[in-house]
Simulated assay, not measured.
Amino acid sequence: MNVQWEGVMPAVTTKFTEQDTLDLDMFLKNIKAQIGAGVSGIILGGTLGEASTLEENEKEVLVKSTVEEVSGKIPVIMNIAEQSTRGALKAVRNAEKYGANGLMVLPPMRYKANATETVTYFSEIAKSTSLPIMIYNNPVDYGIEVSLPMFEELINFSNIQAVKESTRDITNITRLRNRFGERLSILCGVDTLALESLLAGADGWVAGLVCAFPRETVSIYKWAKEGKHKEVLDLYRWFMPLLELDINPQLVQNIKMAEVATGLGTENVRAPRLPLQGGERKRVQEIIDAAMACRPVL
């Protein structure tokens, strides 16, 4: 499948039962809602997907189940976040075997690689596969920035096609566009900067709160691209308190609480994560309740 790196691509949560097994019924209910809202792809195994706690057989089930559910309508993208090049190459082979259509690749985990090491890491992955790749550039959370000179080397690989832009610097979108034109697709990776990024020329949005609010998220993307400024600003301002739940260490718990409110998930997380408790739970629930009380009719 030829992946079009544009539109809204949800980084979906992984659904668990109370017995800590995969909850495929709820997972596929959510995937159906994403497809129905008009998303452009599904991203599995990211931070929101609690990938670091998943067993390999669970990743296989999630990819295969999603591929079957989307039935070729949209691409299924597997996240690659490993500690070693060797581990990443194995994860890529598995993603191919399970039927993924593309990859989102993080820099090496834990070890803070320098520029040469990081470029070499991405290059080895690109050489190992024909799958299209989106590089996840998030120096805030992962401590490694993929700079413009590094991208200059990486675009020698035709399957490195996109960047998930999470530097928190909106002007980096313009720098990327000025340097590389349309060679790299640019997708915003920070929910609270989505509209600003789209107006600055981003091609799409790798979204988090879309897991609970797919129609609202897709509407923001479409209205921004259609120039419906008043409509999109009104919707974005309503959405912002919810979007801020994504830029928080407990983003998984936050978004799963929002999924409960919209009937698209449960609060079950995998330890060491635990559902929110006490004052923080009350704060998050109040944000969700306030948003639901005046949820726009689309």
Rank of each mutant, 00 (worst) to 15 (best):
E117M: 11
V39A: 07
I135H: 04
Q19E: 15
E196V: 01
A81E: 05
R281T: 02
A291I: 09
N114C: 12
V284Y: 01
N30C: 14
A200C: 07
D234E: 15
A91N: 08
A258H: 03
S71L: 12
F239L: 11
T21V: 05
M134C: 11
G181E: 08
A258T: 08
E58L: 07
P275M: 08
V284E: 05
N79V: 13
K230Y: 12
K127M: 10
D203L: 00
T129V: 02
P107F: 06
E259Q: 14
D141V: 08
T17N: 08
Y111G: 00
R295E: 13
L148W: 09
E117H: 07
S123F: 01
G204M: 02
V252H: 00
V163D: 03
L187Y: 00
K256N: 08
S52Y: 13
V70G: 09
M292K: 11
L154Y: 05
G208S: 10
P272K: 04
V12D: 03
S128G: 06
G265Y: 06
R168F: 15
S128W: 03
V63N: 07
M9N: 03
A88H: 02
S130R: 09
R110I: 15
L276F: 03
D234H: 12
D289G: 04
L298G: 11
A261R: 08
T116I: 12
S123Q: 07
R168Y: 14
V105F: 00
G72H: 10
L28W: 04
P214K: 06
G278A: 15
L264H: 03
N156C: 09
M1H: 12
P249E: 14
G99K: 10
V67T: 13
N137M: 07
E244G: 03
Q34M: 14
I288R: 01
G201C: 04
V146M: 10
L154W: 04
L148A: 13
C188H: 01
K97V: 05
V8H: 00
Q285S: 14
V269E: 04
E124Q: 12
I144E: 02
D234T: 14
V140C: 03
L176W: 00
Q83E: 15
A81I: 05
A212R: 02
Y142D: 12
S130G: 02
G265H: 05
Q161N: 07
E124M: 05
Y98W: 15
